[in-house]
Write a protein that binds this DNA or RNA. Structure first.
Lengths: 229, 229
DNA sequence: GACGCTTATCGTCAGCATGACGAAAAAGGG
DNA sequence: CCCTTTTTCGTCATGCTGACGATAAGCGTC
């Protein structure tokens, strides 16, 4: 880090969120409708300014809570990347630190103070404000990759879930079909991926499925493989 | 992204670099000795302020060139993560966008204008200014992980290299021993990882080795596996 | 030049994980 | 009771990996 003898000028910093969830076999992202200029009326990623004495991660957690009402440590939140190309915001120099959140499906989102509304949008979405289409694409790509070598697919599931529900998460995020038998063997055979609850739940049809909760593993060795075609 | 009705206050943004190289079977990082307060005389990661009309990536490229004299597209450069905890810089609110660079070994580094000197330091390094120890740790961990599923180890090698040189890169970064025969089979058997040049080079002892250059592959499927113990 | 030493490269083989797919178990409905 | 559906367990061929033997191709020495 250099000195302040030639400071680069001051910058505004925002924390914006790519909030993904899986519902009805669709990958959905949380969007807000902008209530002010620029891009008034356009859809954008939720987010806002980092407060003067606020950590970046804390700002992301706060924005997530403001938009979803989430307070408990549910799902998953991680930093995605930062975007600071000059001109990306017509109001001036803005650097955005983007975060990626993976959540189980929740009740309807709450519109923030500066938004006219919020909604879950199925992918692919249409036009977005600023460079948010690029940020969203990066987030989706990160999520797809992380399902391979981490157990993060459980972040899309409720606390207790069936193997079939978990498989449908993979199939939805990857847009691929997985063999239920091999998937079952792989998931239950990977130590720490999921842990049996001991109870079963009856589906609408067919044999009732065992319930599982997420295990302590942080990485999958060997990874879950995405189908090649 | 929200509006400017309650801006979070302005922030200074720096682009700092974790520049890694492999030399003499050591993983080394480029450090500069700070010539000004705070942390005057302490070692720190190279970097500096993002200019008012400069892209983040461009700032990282510029800083890399200023510190190493690099101009050609050699090695690898990618964004690592951003750090903005309040108080991490005693002068005020500073958000640092860290970049990770992987380079083949180069001549002695050049000291920047605001540094008393620059040097390659073998890992682990001692105390660093600011939270640079944390940034460095994140960068090293990213590099170690990327060697598994990407051909980025070639970024540590000169344009033409032998399989043994490439293996020594893996052994150094991972601090592990790899079987030369299995490594040779894996590297030459992965399409697009390396391409034979057609010539050989004589080492000091033993049979001369074929020369290779980096192939077009961006990902390794299946990945290179780190030894478990 | 034969020999020994070193390193690069090729082969072999057992073990494990995977993909494809059959089959049994466990429910509900006609 | 039979049929359908879904879950769960098995089987088998294949491919990748780890361990390690064997050969190739240089150099130095006697």
């Amino acid at each position: 880090m250099a000195d302040f003898s030639s400071p680069g000028g001051s910058v505004s910093v925002t924390a914006d969120l790519v909030v993904l969830t899986v519902q009805s076999n669709e990958l959905r992202v949380l969007l807000v409708r902008r209530g002010i200029e620029p891009y008034r009326g356009a859809w954008a990623l939720p987010g806002g300014f980092v407060l003067p004495d606020e950590d970046l991660d804390a700002a992301a957690v706060r924005e997530l809570r403001e938009e979803t009402g989430l307070t408990a440590p549910v799902g998953h939140l991680e930093q995605l990347a930062s975007y600071g190309t000059p001109g990306r915001d017509p109001r001036g120099r803005v650097v955005t630190v983007a975060y990626l959140a993976l959540l189980p499906h929740l009740p309807a989102p709450v519109a923030g103070s500066d938004a006219e509304g919020a909604a879950w949008a199925a992918l692919p979405v249409g036009e977005l404000a600023f460079d948010h289409a690029r940020i969203l694409a990066d987030g989706v790509e990160r999520a797809r990759a992380k399902l391979e070598y981490s157990p993060l697919a459980t972040a899309f599931c409720p606390p207790e879930f069936t193997i079939t529900e978990l498989r449908e998460v993979y199939e939805t995020v990857w847009d691929a079909r997985l063999d239920p038998r091999n998937f079952h063997r792989k998931v239950t055979g990977t130590p720490g991926f999921v842990e049996p609850v001991g109870r079963s739940i009856a589906a609408e049809r067919g044999r009732p499925a065992q319930l599982f909760r997420r295990g302590p593993a942080r990485l999958l060795h060997p990874p879950m493989l995405r189908p090649t075609p």
